[in-house]
Every structure is written in C-alpha cells, then in structure tokens.
Design a protein around this nucleic acid. Structure first.
Lengths: 347, 347
DNA sequence: CTGAAAGCGCTTACAG
DNA sequence: CTGAAAGCGCTTACAG
C-alpha cells in the first residue's frame, strides 16, 4: 500500500505542500478556513508526516535511548526490570518515546560501535546507560561528540561535565550498616563486596572501611570477599568465605546489595546457619523480595522510581535546552529494620 | 557540530556518493582497494549514515514498537516489568531495537492517534501490544492499514488473520484449579474473576464454570466476584465477597491470577482467616512473589519469557517476510503445588 | 567497476 | 496569506 504524502494532501485539498506543512505543524499564519479544509483531507486520508522527511530537516526525534550493558541478564531480576518501566513512564509523560536495547557483550567493539551508530544515526536525542563500568570509554566518546548522556551508577571525578547527567547512590549507607550492627553488639562483621568496577560498589566498600575504623573494629581479610550484583555471586562468595572461616565465624554479614544478600541467605541455609540466630545479614537497595523473604531483610531502601524519573527528566530538560539543570544527583537510602539482624546485647 | 555526511566522505576519499553507499552497505561490486580506502576515511571521520536518508529510500527501521495500554501502573509489578525486558532481549538478539511507550488513557482519542502516528511515521516495522482489551478498535485499524501487529492476551474469533500474531494463555488451568480443589475435598469454592474485557479472564471464567459443572458443584452468585488484574482489586473483591458471605464462608478461593491472590491473602489476614487452615487459595501466573509469600502460593506457572520471546520472534519473522510463521500460539500452564491449599480429606 | 542524476517526504526561507 | 524552489542525506537504477 503506497502511503499518502504531503503532496497527495496538497493536491486533494487544492493548496501547496507548504500550506499542508504549516497546518500539520500548527503555524499561526493560516486562516481558519484553509486550516479546516486541509485538516479534513488529512483526517479523511489518515495522513501522518513521515519521520524521515522531518528528521532530514533537523526536527528532533523526541526519542530517548536506553542501553543495558549486558543481555539476557536483567529480566530475571524484578528490581532491575522495574527500572525500564520507570524510564518508559517518565518519557511518556513528556511525550517522548524510549528506544532501548541490551548489548550482548560490551567488551566487543561491535557493541560500542552499535551504541555510537544509534546516536549518530539521529535515532535518539540522548541516551541513558545502565550498568556501565567506571572506565567505559564509549561514554567519553559520546560526550566528545556532543551527545547528551544520562548515567545511572557511574563514576565521575569531575562534576558538571556538560551534557552528562548522573544519578548515583549516596554511599554512606554502608557506614551506617556497620554502625547499626555495632550498636547491636556485633564485633565480628564480614562484608560481601560488589563488583568494584561499578562506582556504587566502590563507594560502599569505602563506607564499610570507614565504619570499621570509626568503631575500632578489626578488618580481617578473610571476612572481606567480593561478589557481584546478583544472587548467584552473593551465594558463591558467602559459601567460600564461610567455609574458609572454619569455626571462627563472623556474627554478621553486610551484603553489597539485597540480591547478594538473598544469595547469602541461601549459602547460610546450605551450611545449616540460621538467620538471624546464628548470623545476621544486612543488605542495601530495597528489593521487593526483601519484604517477603524469611526472615524479612533489614536493609536500606532507595527510591528507584524517583531516581529514574528524575534522571530521565533531567536528560530531557537538557535535550530541550533548558538551563540550570541539576547535573549530578545523589540519592539517599532509608534504613528499614526488619528481621535479619540479631541484637546480641539482649542475651 | 555539523555532522559528516556521505558527501564529505566521498569528497575526501575521492570517490562518488554512490561508491560510499556501496561500501557502507557492503555491496559486492567494489574492488578491495577502493573499499579499504573508503573505509579508512569513514572510520577516521566517524561517519554513520543518518537514519533519515535511509528511511526515505524505504530501508526498514529495524525497530519494533511496544505499547502499554496504561501508564504509571506497571512499574510496581515485577512480573509485568519483566515482560519488557524479555522483549528487549529478544529484539536485541535479532539486531532490532525496541521503541516503547505507555499510553496515559487508551480511551482518549489522543492515545489512539499517537499509536497510529508512531506506525505511520515509519518509526517502527511492527508493534506489540500489552493490555489491549478485546474490542480495541485501533488494532483492527492498524491491520487494515497493512501494519504488522503482535498481541499478548488478545481476543480473536478468527484465526490466521494476516499480519496479526498472538500469544495467549491456555485457559484450561481454571478448570484444573477446580478439579484440584475438588480432589482435596473442597465443595464450597469461590472465584475472584479478572477484568472480563481481557480474553484471558474470559477464558478462565469459562474454565471455572466448566470445572463447577463437571464436578457437580453449586455455582453460587455470591461466591463469584469480579476483580481486575492487580493486588488491590483482588483485595477489594475478596473483602466484599467474604463480608457478604457472613458465616457461610467458602472453603477455597480461586483467584484469576497471582497478583489478585496476594490481595486475597491480605483480605483474609484482615478478616482473621488463616490460609490454608481456614480458607484455601489458588492462583495462576507463576508470579515470583508466590515463592516467598506465606504460605507459598499454589498456582499454575506460565513461561512468560518464552511467551514474549516467541511472540517477538514471530513478529520479526513476519516483518522479514518469512512464510509459514505460526500466527496464533497458546501457552500451557504448569501446576505447582505449594502451601496455600488445605486437604480437607485428611481431617 | 563507477559516476551523474533522479527521487524519497518533508520544512523553510524567500518572494510575492 | 501562500506558492515555487531549494535543500536536508541517502539509495538506486541507468549509462558508460
């Protein structure tokens, strides 16, 4: 089916293509009578201007990109899956579309090229990245190429880099985790760190260290172990760490995030350790499973909806040339005491 | 920054735009030496052909649309949020992008117009719909306009409508729910139906009725109540129904889906009814919360990842002109017995 | 093997 | 208020 063009509408309505364009774009210099005549034909023939012609004339695409730096990996996690819905909603509220894809392996040049291509093709007015490591060079390249980039959990030494918007976790929750456990009488505290190529994990790592020092706690190497972001890595790291401890077990474990904490739960169960009777666990994120797991997980919740809605709006503000847009934003965690930490002072 | 065009590349490489185009598109009739020369210039200047020019010549956009028939509504549900990640992954595997948006109110003409516009602008090669009601007329309009449409949970009287691909639930799980409860000795069974403007809910409703008839159970009006898709509607419907029952309570409740079942849990808790001691509950879907809620929910699980990956692939196959694509697919549920149904015959 | 030319559908000064 | 014309960046017959 040949689609109807502005030429067809112009011919049928008895005007020029210029006038059709003026009507479509709502320009004021068209008398009401002409406007009505043209609109009637447009509606009758279901005319919609094609994107290609508009793009060619520099009209913005009103589309935001969203790039996931891994594939077949996020759908299993309800928390991470919700991120994209938040961004979709936020875009839609501003009358933008979201164009998104997962990258199969960001370390392949093909993936980086694909990202650059999506920007340079002018498919999108800006792009948001999830899961970019601290040293991802494609980010810098895009900024150099004058592209607008939004980053979730991304390292930056310099604030206020033009066209770069960030949303990050306030890392002080890690220190507060140690304080809290200390206040419950815990002195032998282990840590399951996350993947330190992500800034949130680095910040939390340093927060744990501050907490240890502040409370004069011994930092034992064998109680520090490195996980990732996810359930399985938390489970593996906890199993390895707890087995290596022999009988000299920690009384509490700080997990880098809630998904990791759920892995710690499983590891403890496999080793016959009860939570919180034998060992306490504290997480960070506010994963929905934390409410219903057994025992419910004590953690710090973050308002992810707010984080993504704000980031998306700041990206769109920048696209639209607004000034004074807040470029770098840190979001605080809220402590939620549930049932996974034992008070040793009650004994 | 003025972006570099095929004209620039042609000039610098000392060839014509035609040759640049041939190199970019990998046509065979370019000698290796010319190809290398042009590729060098392309890489040096970071040249990427703009979408607008290609679109204008009829090149497909390699983009699939995904429309959510409600806004600010899905992010709260981890099951529904995962749908989009599955589609994103499936598109990415085929080297397609996903363009998606939520509609604020499908009953406004503006929303329908926005959908038509997104297709007609040629932004997308096809579109997938989530949450369309049985009688959504924009679907028929799109098919009439030769667009390719993928539908999740959508009614159809006629099979094999050209360019229409569907993914639906096998509705027999509802009948099996009744059979199962009957086998446990339940005779007083209530039903919380879903929103009957969605075909899955209609099919389940009819399945329940078949189950009642088959097992010679009385269908009492006051035990049939109508919820929606979500937690709150399930809770409200259950509260109303249970209060109306007075002392003549059902021994079991079939919830249209798991989210509704969780609402039933809350309603029962508020009324001081224990599950499964006082009342049994069975759901359908395989919601992740069903594993960790208390008691774990007996349900029928569906392989949503498979449903969405298959639907996406069939849509893309159709876009690419493959023949013999399976148009209408039903997916079976798998019974998973957990802890929410009591065996009355054990007493 | 390769270039000149036409054309895809739109918008925007420009001229009237 | 409105039309003719130029131009946006690409691809594709066509001619050589």
């Amino acid at each position: 089916m040949k689609s109807v063009t502005s030429n067809d509408i112009a011919r049928i309505a008895g005007v020029s293509r210029s006038t059709v364009s003026r009507v479509v774009n709502g320009y004021p210099n068209v008398p009401e009578k002409t406007r009505r005549k043209v609109m009637e034909v447009i509606e009758q023939y279901h005319y919609y201007p094609q994107l290609s012609g508009q793009l060619l004339n520099g009209t913005p695409s009103r589309t935001i990109g969203m790039f996931w730096m891994a594939r077949n990996h996020f759908a299993v996690d309800p928390l991470i899956s919700s991120f994209v819905m938040n961004v979709i909603d936020a875009c839609a509220e501003r009358n933008y579309l979201l164009l998104t894809c997962t990258l199969d392996d960001i370390n392949r040049d093909g993936s980086r090229n694909f990202i650059r291509k999506t920007f340079m093709e002018r498919r999108i007015d800006a792009g948001i990245f999830i899961g970019a490591t601290n040293d991802e060079r494609v980010i810098d390249q895009l900024i150099e190429m004058d592209q607008i980039v939004g980053l979730f959990d991304y390292y930056h030494e310099n604030e206020n880099v033009p066209r770069r918007l960030t949303a990050n976790f306030d890392g002080s929750t890690a220190e507060q985790s140690i304080d809290y456990l200390y206040s419950l009488g815990h002195r032998k505290i282990a840590v399951i760190d996350g993947d330190l190529s992500h800034i949130s994990c680095v910040n939390r790592h340093e927060g744990y260290l501050r907490g240890f020092r502040k409370n004069n706690l011994t930092i034992r190497n064998k109680w520090f172990s490195f996980g990732g972001f996810h359930y399985q890595s938390g489970k593996d790291a906890a199993l390895e760490m707890l087995k290596a401890c022999g009988s000299d077990l920690p009384t509490a474990i700080c997990a880098n995030n809630d998904s990791t904490a759920f892995g710690v739960y499983t590891a403890c169960r496999e080793l016959g350790l009860r939570i919180p009777e034998d060992i306490s666990v504290i997480g960070a994120d506010g994963h929905p499973y934390g409410l219903t797991c057994s025992p419910p997980l004590t953690t710090f919740t973050f308002d992810f909806r707010q984080m993504f809605v704000s980031l998306t709006n700041r990206v769109i503000d920048t696209v639209e040339g607004k000034t004074g847009v807040l470029q770098d934003e840190f979001f605080p965690g809220t402590f939620v005491e549930r049932g996974s930490c034992r008070n040793l002072l009650d004994c």
